[in-house]
Design a protein around this nucleic acid. Structure first.
Lengths: 342, 342
DNA sequence: CTGAAAGCGCTTACAG
DNA sequence: CTGAAAGCGCTTACAG
């Protein structure tokens, strides 16, 4: 708020509403003794004129807005990476970052506003229509990072080019000479997983490589899925010689299953991950993977959140940053033994 | 603050100081036209009576204090784990967690107070006497998680039993039949590293196993250190058959160096990590490591911070939680070849 | 249900 | 350098 613009006061609202200051004060403080129509009219005006109660005036300090970042479940590597980007961009912008687990307690959205949060960034969280309505009601802007649902024009979101990532990963394997490539992915419902899978499928079809149903396995974005899924794939009549996975954790599970069965990666089995978290760089062998620019995505989400908090419009409700194939040591041409293996 | 206790007002202070409310107001707002002695006397009284300017009154809401957590460098796995513990305990206590990178901009400590932070948790950060003085000056309590320096009675800190962790890890390797065990650690200056190393040394000496100087290598707590340090160790005249590392990241570097040289873990080389981050569970082979209860440590740090924020005394300025050996698949008895290897 | 009036905590222009 | 006085934004007990 520019210094020369006066804050809206109760008197301003009272005058416009044609009531006394006392009545407006009662509405603001939620007292019971106000006629419903009067209350409605006053509330409307308060909202129109951005009235802010004194207790919350500190949130006005635009130099230091506070953004809440919520995640679900564990604070995994890729959440941490995105968070780094959020924190760095916030520091640049002079904003503060509050981090919490998504909670859906009764007045969660209103509580966030009361606590002075100016916007909410949800990292891969599930949001229902009811949540969005609640946010809209209290006027808290939302940015979803790596959305699980299809980009909806109601919701601002930041993602990555998952389809081209899947395409690039699979082409890389095909160009090495693999034909029997499987996709071991995350939840079938998640759009990011669907996009990666369709990228895989597109690359396979373009090459005329067959994709038996058993070569596409959904699961969770977890190590467990990698461990079990790889075992199932390797026991197929025609086991794949390469596995493209939905994320790095799954890939590590695949590597471990291969190792436990005496298969060498990449000589006997090639593995490609997705995300390029710390896990990928530190895997043994270091993992070929599709890099999601998680830091940059976090930064973009933070800047979008600040704009929305400021009441500015945003050019596009969905931004997608480019993925990039990072070739390390977990991929190689298919070996003789591998191709010949049962 | 109990609801029946009235807030200190400017009038209270004015009366005690024997000046007018106007003068007190000027002192609070840092106006120039006040006599130095008057200013000093009033400031003293303001401080004594915990006067809080209206703009900062929101920090008074004891139900929801805000704690700042600062880390340095990257948001690594073990910081993320500690952060999970901090976030969960904060949610239980109804507190908020602001996360940022440690910055030493001018007035950093005062800025934290102005922003309403009630305490600071520093995760493995370097704190100099000057920093501590600055914090003391503005009255902001500090809790250091996994301190790099020796526990100082001036500083509240939460750590883990690093010495017994080092002891347990090394005994485990000795009990498997290893004699040539090396320690590849972190910074020689870090107390946590020293304690782990001395635990190692104690176990080796108790067993009468020789510890050549070359078997103790300091480094950084990084994958790189593991990569390079393992290469150096394996090229010794008498290479170790087992390596105990300062943390999981180093251990992953060691595993990769072993793999790249065609050595199998654990058949040809046993490796033990420290921390038990996600990295350890997802390594290939899964890593035997010393678990630091990072979540619990984070929780303890948060609760200590809240107590200090509340003005309560804390029983002990340093708490140490127990480490625990987690045996997975990266350790085994020394193989024939390994013992005989040049 | 409404609002005039008293009052609270604070700030500031200005007289001394 | 000090403070009486006017004033601001808000709340609340109470009369109607």
């Amino acid at each position: 708020m520019p210094p020369n613009v006066r804050r809206t006061t109760l008197a301003d609202i009272a005058q416009r509403a044609g009531v006394s200051v006392a009545t407006v004060s009662k509405v603001v403080n939620g007292r019971g003794d106000v006629a419903p129509q009067t209350r409605a009219r006053v509330q409307e005006l308060l909202h129109q004129h951005d009235y802010l109660a004194p207790v919350f005036r500190h949130t006005e300090a635009l130099e230091s807005p506070t953004i809440e970042v919520q995640f679900q479940g564990d604070l995994k590597s890729y959440v941490a990476k995105a968070l780094e980007g959020i924190i760095d961009s916030a520091a640049e912008a002079g904003a503060s970052v509050v981090i919490s687990k998504a909670s859906r307690a009764p007045h969660w959205a209103r509580d966030l506003v009361s606590a002075g949060r100016r916007a909410l960034i949800a990292v891969t969280s599930v949001y229902t229509a009811a949540h969005l309505k609640e946010l809209a009601r209290v006027g808290l802007p939302l940015v979803v990072l790596d959305p699980l649902h299809l980009p909806d024009s109601q919701v601002n979101s930041v993602g990555a080019t998952n389809f081209s990532g899947g395409l690039a990963a699979t082409r890389h394997l095909l160009s090495l000479g693999h034909r029997r490539v499987a996709y071991l992915g995350g939840p079938a419902m998640a759009v990011c997983n669907q996009a990666r899978m369709h990228g895989y499928r597109a690359a396979m079809e373009a090459e005329g490589a067959p994709v038996p149903d058993a070569y596409i396995r959904p699961g969770e974005f977890t190590y467990e899925t990698g461990l079990l899924g790889a075992a199932a794939l390797l026991e197929l009549e025609e086991p794949p010689t390469a596995i493209f996975t939905g994320n790095d954790e799954i890939a590590l599970g695949v590597i471990e299953t291969a190792r436990a069965r005496g298969l060498r990666v990449p000589e006997d089995l090639s593995v490609v991950g997705f995300d390029d978290t710390d896990l990928a760089q530190m895997a043994s062998p270091p993992l070929t993977t599709v890099r999601q620019p998680l830091r940059e995505m976090g930064g973009a989400a933070l800047r979008t959140a600040l704009r929305l908090a400021n009441g500015d419009k945003v050019e596009s409700h969905h931004i997608e940053l480019a993925t990039e194939l990072v070739v390390r040591a977990s991929t190689a041409p298919p070996g003789e033994e591998a191709s010949a293996r049962k």
